[in-house]
Nucleic acid binder design. Structure first.
Length: 563
RNA sequence: UGAGCGAUGGUGUAACGGCAGCACUACAGUUUUUGGAGCUGUUUGUCCAGGUUCGAAUCCUGGUCGCUCAACCA
């Protein structure tokens, strides 16, 4: 499935992580094993940035015949829920990956506790009674060294006693913490006696009320990787400054050392990715939920109609590096068009109907015409499309006074109705406002199927739907949620929601060919000349709902714009 | 203003001291029963200043700019 990227001389192009791994394999590090992991906290829904990480971690293991664990870093019981565990599992599966082991940081609470005792006995950890405010003061700032806690030199015995009593629930939340004894003058804030354990009398989604002390992420994460025998701990750039601390724990505890490798997270134009902002959009009903098709969440993207193949190809195409990057949302759209072009059945649907009467067509005749399901895939076959005297075409496909280079329907010019006939507009009917509400045409019976035996050409081909057989459907046109390329970059006096696109959702009542009557939920279609659409779960037996995944590329709008 | 990391066309990403390549975008042409898709081509780039070298995107020195770090969050 995965092909090697090639450079001009046909050598496989490796990203910097693959280079590190191949070097490690050459040196027989970890017995040349490759074992990665995807370690989400189950406190929210995964988004497309996580998708990059998932594709990376699983892709690496696949490429080097290794393994990938799914591990939930659930060290904070106040935020984590089983609901999120389930959604994360579903999203990873949907992307096309199977994990080798499913683990939880909470599986390791016992081991982590034992290791805390080891550190205390080595004189490398101590119980500190400073309040949160005092601790912040003692910690200093990046440019100012911190100073040692007055509790830093308690005896091993006292620390042991206090820590066991913390675990036994003798103290209230926040009364004490266990800290590592490292260096308050380190330029790296994470080395200034970081907190290992805090007291939290809170029920945990997996361990229930077994514990009232919980390890901090920094204390749990690296050791969890170590326990699982992870060889390459791939994470985002902001964790680089944590690495010396993880290495410190590994060294003090004398356990397996995974190698952490940091890469730059994904940013997308016209998109916000921060958990806080996404939550705000959901909570304040700017969108219909986490799976709103406009959301950059994996469940949103899925409902929108993006495919796992497109997402994987996107992840491959954007590459991996350590430099900050902002990917053009257009590239994501390109990837989904590329995939759907090969797969999606073509159908004709009229979004903004204009009634067309073919005056010389028999009154009650319903003809069945052949249509090709997918010109990119012959195996997709053909279908019948009903044709009748009254049809709908797109309002945009008629212009009473055509502009230059407009070659769809206008009075006196012949156009092709796709898979049907050549027709020519003979007259129009207008309402009291002068707007065309009905078009009258003549057709050439000899052009059935879309070609004239005399070989004459037409410049335009338009889609249509038989009025007699049309299916009424709801179509949801989604557009980007934000109207500025960098909505994360909020001016000081503004809010990121100020730049939301007011037209990110338009709902239309459209006319579709009857083929769509039994379209299954989540099926992808191309509405010819319009875009790719996907059947939404909101569909009922009476009314199908279609989400626009992405529009087709529209070169007419460019021509039009130039005139 | 401390420490760490980074800088290659409009956007991403290659090059491992030897012709700056690829993808997306843009533009042009070709083709077309989707103004879709396809095909062909074109424009646009090594942050700056020095140095080493026959030769520097790559190595060295200095600067500039950007990102990250001061939750009992992850």
């Amino acid at each position: 499935m995965e092909e090697n990227r090639l450079n001009a001389s046909s050598k496989p192009v490796l990203n910097f992580i693959e280079e590190i791994i191949e070097e490690d394999i050459r040196n027989n590090k970890n017995d040349a094993r490759v074992h990665t992991r995807f370690p989400p906290e189950p406190n929210g829904y995964l988004h497309i940035g996580h998708a990059k990480s998932i594709c990376l971690n699983f892709g690496l293991a696949k490429k080097y015949n290794g393994k990938t664990n799914l591990r939930f870093d659930d060290t904070n019981p106040t935020k984590e829920e089983t609901e999120y565990v389930d959604s994360i599992r579903e999203d990873v599966k949907w992307l096309g990956f199977d994990w080798d082991g499913e683990y939880y940081a909470s599986d390791y609470f016992g081991q982590l506790y034992e290791w805390a005792l080891v550190l205390i006995k080595k004189g490398k950890a101590y119980v500190c009674d400073l309040t949160q405010e005092e601790a912040a003061e003692y910690r200093g700032t990046p440019t100012r060294p911190g100073k040692e806690s007055p509790f830093r030199n308690r005896s091993v015995e006292e620390n042991l006693d206090l820590f066991v009593r913390m675990k036994n629930g003798e103290f209230p939340d926040g009364a004490r913490v266990l800290r590592a004894k490292i260096d308050l003058t380190s330029p790296n804030m994470h080395m200034r006696d970081p907190i290992l354990y805090r007291i939290l009398h809170t029920e945990h989604h997996r361990t229930g009320n077994d514990w009232c002390i919980y390890p901090m992420y920094d204390y749990a994460h690296g050791q969890s990787d170590s326990i699982e025998g992870i060889t390459h701990s791939v994470c985002t750039l902001e964790f680089e400054v944590h690495r010396p601390l993880y290495d410190w724990f590994i060294k003090e505890l004398e356990i397996h050392a995974p190698q952490q490798i940091e890469f730059a997270r994904l940013n997308l134009t016209y998109t916000v990715m921060s958990k806080r902002k996404l939550l705000e959009l959901v909570r304040d009903n700017y969108v219909s939920g986490w799976d709103d098709p406009r959301m950059p969440t994996i469940c949103g993207i899925r409902r929108r109609g993006y495919t796992p193949e497109a997402m994987r190809n996107f992840a491959e195409t954007i590459g991996v590096a350590r430099r900050e990057n902002v990917i053009d949302i257009g590239l994501l759209e390109h990837c989904v068009r590329e995939d759907l072009n090969k797969k999606a059945i073509r159908v004709m649907t009229v979004l903004n109907p204009l009634k067309v009467v073919i005056d010389n067509y028999p009154e009650d005749l319903i003809d069945e015409l052949d249509a090709i399901n997918n010109p990119e895939d012959e195996s997709a076959g053909k279908r019948k499309v009903p044709f009748s005297k009254v049809i709908y075409i797109e309002k945009d496909d008629f212009m009473e006074v055509p502009s230059k280079k407009y070659f769809r329907m206008s009075p006196g010019t012949e156009v092709r109705l796709r898979y049907a006939y050549f027709v020519k507009c003979e007259s129009v009917v207008k309402d009291e406002n002068g707007e065309v509400i009905e078009v009258h045409c003549s057709y050439d019976p000899a052009s059935r199927g879309g070609n004239s035996p005399d070989g004459r050409k037409v410049k335009g081909t338009i889609h249509w739907v038989s009025a007699a057989k049309a299916l009424d459907v709801e179509v949801r046109l989604f557009d980007r949620l934000f109207s500025v390329p960098d909505p994360e970059n909020v001016p000081e006096d503004g809010n990121f929601k100020d730049s939301m696109n007011p037209d990110s959702l338009k709902i239309l009542n459209a006319k579709a060919e009857p083929y769509l009557k039994d379209a299954p939920v989540m099926t992808h279609y191309q509405f010819e000349r319009i875009g790719y659409f996907c059947v939404d779960a909101d569909s009922t037996d009476n009314k199908k709902v279609f989400n626009r995944t992405v529009s087709l590329k529209d070169s007419w709008s460019k021509i039009e714009g130039k005139q």
